[in-house]
Design a binder for these strands. Sequence first.
DNA 1: TGTTTTTCCGTAAACGTTTACGAGAACACA
DNA 2: TGTGTTCTCGTAAACGTTTACGGAAAAACA
Lengths: 341, 341
Amino acid sequence: MASSIHDLARHLNISIGTVSRALNGRADVNADTRQRVLDAAKKLNYSPNQSGRSLRRGATHSIAFMLQPHPGDQEYGEPFFIPFLTGLQAKLAESGLDLIVVMGAPGDYQQERLRRVVETRRADAVVLAWTRREDERIDYLTQAGFPFATLGRSRSGGDAYPSLDLDFEKAGVDAVDRLVARGHRRIAAIRPSLDLNFGYLFLAGYRRALRRHGIEFDPELIADGFINEAGGYAVTPKVMRSKDPPTAIIFNNDAMALGGCKALAEAGIKPGHDIAVIVIVDTPLCRYFSPALTGFRPALEPMGERLAEMLLASIPAYAGAAGARIIREVWPLQLIARDSD
Amino acid sequence: MASSIHDLARHLNISIGTVSRALNGRADVNADTRQRVLDAAKKLNYSPNQSGRSLRRGATHSIAFMLQPHPGDQEYGEPFFIPFLTGLQAKLAESGLDLIVVMGAPGDYQQERLRRVVETRRADAVVLAWTRREDERIDYLTQAGFPFATLGRSRSGGDAYPSLDLDFEKAGVDAVDRLVARGHRRIAAIRPSLDLNFGYLFLAGYRRALRRHGIEFDPELIADGFINEAGGYAVTPKVMRSKDPPTAIIFNNDAMALGGCKALAEAGIKPGHDIAVIVIVDTPLCRYFSPALTGFRPALEPMGERLAEMLLASIPAYAGAAGARIIREVWPLQLIARDSD
DNA sequence: TGTTTTTCCGTAAACGTTTACGAGAACACA
DNA sequence: TGTGTTCTCGTAAACGTTTACGGAAAAACA
C-alpha cells in the first residue's frame, strides 16, 4: 500500500539517492532517468512519507492556525475565520505548504495547545488570531524564537513579527461621523468583554470622534459582553436604561448585533426606525437581516492570502532571494450603507 | 532549543534506550531511574519530536477533519462545525491524539486534499462531514483501506465505517406533522441544491408525512439552493410564486432561513404572522432572530465527542482490549418551539 | 593518445525516535 | 556452590527521507 522510495528504486533498478534527487529536481541527474523516475512515481502512486521527510529536513512544511471558539461561548463558533482560512490555505498551498488548524478548548488562551505545537515541532510556523492587547502567546513565541504571524495587532512583542489587521479605530471614527452627520448625539457602543485588541481600537476611535464632535463621553452608553448573540442580547438593555437613552448603537460584530436587535425588538424598539444600528464587522448575516444592517466589510479572503505571503516573507527558509523581512499592514474597512441607520 | 532524547541521555549519563523506555512507561526500567528521567525531561523541557516518533511508530497520532466551505459560497463559512470540532478535539486529546483540520478549497469535493493526507500519511484517520448520497471520498477511503468516520450517512461504502448522523428524516416528518396540526396544507420545503444526504433524508421525511396526511406532493413547493443566506434569498420567491402559495415553509438550515425571511420581508410577508417558518437545524441565529425561529436542535458538541469514541473504537491500534468494532448511530433532533410557526 | 573536466550515480550517514535482543548483575532456590 | 530466574540496562537496527562525498564513465580538450 504505502510505497516507499525503496520500492521505487528497486522497481527502476537504481539507487534511492538518485530517485530522491530526481524527485526533488536536483541538477545532477540525467534528464532521461529523471523522466523514468517521475513516470514510475506516478505509476506506483508514490508520494514521500511526510514524517521521514520532516525528520530529515528538520521542517514540517506545514503552518498551524490556532483556532479558538468564542471565549465564554460553549455552543457556537466563529464563521468569521473561514474565508480567511480559505485564502490562507490557498496561498500556502502555492508554496507546497499545508495548513493545519489547531483547535483550542473554549475559554483557555491556547497557551497549552500552542506549546504543544511548538515543542513537538508539528509546524514550521503558527498564525494567531484574536490578538489581545497584551498577548502572552506572542510573548511566548518571540521568546521561543518560533516563527509566527498574527491576524490583528497587539502591544506585545514589538514589531518583530508580521501582522495584518483591520483599521478598527478608523471604523469607530467613521461610524460616529456618519451617525453624527445624521443628527445623532447619544451614540452607544457595544463591544467585547475581554481585552481583545480590536475592541480596544474600536473604542479608541469612537472616543476620538466623539471628542472631535464635542460630544461628551458617557460611560453609561458603553457596554461589554461576550462576542456572540447572547452577549449582545444580555448587554444591550443596559445602555437603553440610561437616563438619556441612545438614539444609535454601534455593535462590534454581527452576532452581538443580532442579539442586541432581539433585545430591542422585545422592548418594542425597531432598528432602522426607532434607533440607528451600525455593525463594525459586516457579514452576510448583516446583509440578509431585516432591516439590512449598515456595516464595515472586511476583505477576509484576500487578507488570508496576504498574511500567508507576509508570514513566508518573514521566514528565512521560505523567503526568496530578496531575504527575510517583517511586514505589518493595516487594511481599511469599507462602510456598506444599508437600512439600519 | 530543541532538546532531543540524546541530550536527555547525556545529561543523565544513561543510554537513550533507557530514557525512551522510561518516558513511555515500559516495565523494564527501574522506578528510581524512571523518576530521574521524568524530572530531567521536565527540567530540560523535553518533548519528543513528532516526526521522529511518527516515522518510527508508523503512526502520526493525529486525526484529520476535512473542513469544506459551503459549496458555491465564496465569502462565508460554516459555523455549524465549530462546536462539533470542539467535542471531537476534546475527546481525541484524552487519548493523546491531535486533531488537525484540513481546509478544502470551496467548490471541490476535497478529493485532492484527501489523497494528499492519505498518501503522505499525515494522519492516522480522517473524519468526513457533509456526506453525499453517493460519496466518492468514502469510496476512495474504503478502497485505500484508510480508517475514517463520517458525520452523516451515505449510500457509499456499506456499513464498513463508523458514522454518526442526525435523524433528518424524522425531523422532516415532525416538521410536517406540527404544521399540519396547526392547520397548514400548503407546506413548502427549501433544501440544499447538491446531493448532500441530509437534504435527501429531510425531503424523504417530508414526503412521507405529506402522504400520511393525504396531502398531495407539489413540486412547485420544493426549491433547491445553496446552503447559505444567498441561496435562501434566491430561491424562496420561487415557491411563493406558486399558483396556490404555501402558508408554511420548512428551511433546511438557519442561513437559508435567514435569506428566505429576507425575501419574504421584501414581499411584505411577515414570518410567524403571515407565514409559518420552521428550520431543521437550529442555531443561536434562530434563537435571536425576530421572530425567534422554531427549529430542531442538534447536540453538536456531544456528537463530536461520540464520533471520536466511535472512530477510535473502530481502529485496532486504538481500540482497547474489547477489540475493534464498527458503530453507527443516528441521533434524534429535538424540536424547539419558538415564535415563527 | 593522454589529461582534464563534466556528467551522472551509488554509498552511507544523518535526522529523532522506538524496540528486539542480549548481557551483566542481583537474587532465589536447591 | 551451582543453577535458574528476575531486574535493569546498553547496543544496534529500523522507520523513510535527504544530501555530502567520492568515483566511474563520458565528454572535452590538448
